[in-house]
Nucleic acid binder design. Structure first.
Lengths: 249, 249
DNA sequence: GAACGCTATTTCGCATTCATTTTTTGTCCT
DNA sequence: AGGACAAAAAATGAATGCGAAATAGCGTTC
C-alpha cells in the first residue's frame, strides 16, 4: 500500500467532455478496441478509487499488453471525460465535483427532454403500451418498497423513451453521459428519500400521460423537471451522506 | 539517412493554469494534443474529401511527427465521430448520411433548447443586453443582405445563450456536435432562401423576447423549433443543391 | 528538528522497430 | 486478351527503446 497520493488540486481537465459517438459496430476486435471496452467498464464500475492514480505500467500488466494500445485507449477515455490525463503525471479517474454532477444531471435532463419530444413524434402505440407495462411494473415495486426493482424498471422506462426517439446519435450521447454519472452511482448509492420516491411516481404518471397524448412540448417540460428533481435529490444525498437507509419494506 | 528529429522549437506551454480553475479547452501542450487540435481543424474545415482516405504516413510527414501521437489523435477523433477507423484499412473522414445530419441537427436542437432553459435561470441583465446588441447587429446584416455578417452574428448569439447557461459540460458537448456539422457547412455552404431568412429573423425576435422575460420553458420550445426549421432548410438545400446562390446584395 | 536542495529511480512521451494484413503488380494460364 | 493467382510492396497494429520530466529518497544546513 503506497502512501497517500499527493493531491495537487488536479487542474488540467480533459480536452473535451464530448458527446461523442463510438457506436462503431464491433470493430472492437482489435486490441486497442478491446482494451477500450474493458478499461471503460473497469472505470465505470468504480474499481478504481475516485481520483486515484492509474499508472500505465500497472494497467499494462493487468491487461497483459504493451503501452501503446493502452495509451490509445486512455486518450479516448479522457476525451469521453471519464479520466483525466495530467502531462507527464499519468492518468487519474476524473473526480467529479458537486458542480460537475449538477452540470451532468442538467445535460442528461436536456437529453431526456429532447428524447421525450422526439419520441412523441415517432412512438408507436405498441411502444407506448410497453412503457405502460414498465410503468405498472415499477409501480408494483414502489408499493412493495423494492428499491432495486423500482430502480431497474425506472431505468428501462427512460431507456425506452430514448429508444423511441429514433435517434442513434442521441442514444449514444445519452449512454455516454449516463456512464459518467453511473460511476458515481456505484460509489455512493443514491438512497431515495421516501418523499422523493412518491414524488417521482407522480411525475412518472405525468410522463406517461403526456406520452400517451403525444404532447411533445409538454413531455419535454415534465422530463426536464423530473430530472431536475432527481438531481436535487442526488446532490442532497451527497452533501448530507445518509438520510434513511432502510430498504426493507 | 538519419531521421532528423523535427525539433520545431514549439514553446510547449508548461502545465501552468493550475488552481481550481477548470478550463475545459486548450491544455493541449503535449504533442498529441497539439496534433489533435490541428488535425481536428484540418478535418472540420473540410480539407479532406468526404469519405476520403487519410493515410497515417501522409499525415505524419505533413505534421512532421511520428505515427504514435498521430494515431492517438486519430483514435480520439474517431471517438468524437469525425472520422471512422477501419480495421487494418486506415482512417476515413466520416461520411454523414442525410439521416445522420437530421439526427445531429435534432441533438443540437435539444442542446440549444436546454441552453435556453438554463440561461433563463442564470443570465444577467448585462448578458441580455449583449445578446440584444448582437441581435440588432444581425438585423442590420439582414437588412443589408450581408449573409456572412448575418451568419456570424447569428452564431455568436447562439454561443452567447450557451455561455449564459453556465454549464461547461453542455458547452463542450455543444462545441463537439457543432464541429461535426460544421464540416458539412464548409463543403456545402448553406445558402439560405430568402423566405427562410425572414422567418429566421422572426424566430430570433421571439427568442430574444422569451429571453428577456426569462421564460425558460417557452424559450426552450422556441429554440427547438428554430433549430428544427434550420434543419429543414439545410436538408432541403442538400437534396436540391442550389436554390439561389447570389450572395451579392 | 524542520526546511531546503541535490541525486536516484520511476514514469511518461515520442520515435523507432517488428510483425501482420492489405493492396498492388507482375506473370502465367485459359 | 482477359482473368486469376502469387509475390512484392506498402500500410496498419502492436511492441520496444530512449530521452525527458517528475516523484521520491536522502543528506545537508539553518
Amino acid at each position: 500500500m503506497k502512501s497517500t497520493i499527493p493531491d495537487t488540486g488536479v487542474p488540467i481537465t480533459p480536452p473535451a467532455g464530448n458527446g461523442g459517438d463510438r457506436e462503431e459496430n464491433r470493430q472492437e476486435a482489435s486490441l486497442h478496441g478491446e482494451i477500450l471496452l474493458r478499461l471503460r467498464d473497469h472505470v465505470v464500475e468504480g474499481n478504481i478509487p475516485d481520483g486515484g492514480r492509474v499508472p500505465e505500467r500497472q494497467l499494462c500488466e493487468m491487461f497483459g499488453i504493451s503501452r501503446t494500445p493502452l495509451r490509445e485507449a486512455l486518450k479516448v477515455l479522457a476525451a469521453e471525460g471519464l479520466i483525466e490525463l495530467l502531462p507527464n503525471r499519468g492518468a487519474r479517474v476524473r473526480q467529479l465535483s458537486q458542480r460537475d454532477l449538477e452540470e451532468l444531471f442538467d445535460v442528461m435532463a436536456g437529453l431526456e427532454s429532447l428524447a421525450g419530444r422526439l419520441a412523441c413524434e415517432a412512438i408507436t402505440d405498441e411502444e407506448i403500451t410497453a412503457v405502460e407495462q414498465l410503468h405498472y411494473e415499477m409501480y408494483g415495486h414502489y408499493l412493495h418498497r423494492d428499491m432495486h426493482g423500482y430502480f431497474q424498471a425506472n431505468q428501462r422506462i427512460h431507456e425506452s423513451i430514448v429508444a423511441a426517439a429514433r435517434n442513434e446519435t442521441l442514444k449514444t450521447a445519452y449512454a455516454n453521459f449516463a456512464g459518467r454519472i453511473r460511476r458515481v452511482r456505484y460509489s455512493a448509492n443514491f438512497a431515495r428519500k421516501r418523499q422523493r420516491w412518491a414524488e417521482a411516481m407522480r411525475e412518472h404518471e405525468a410522463i406517461l400521460d403526456a406520452l400517451r397524448r403525444r404532447a411533445g412540448s409538454e413531455l419535454s417540460d415534465i422530463l426536464f423537471q423530473h430530472l431536475r428533481n432527481k438531481r436535487k435529490a442526488a446532490i442532497e444525498h451527497l452533501t448530507e451522506p445518509h438520510e434513511d437507509g432502510p430498504s426493507a419494506p
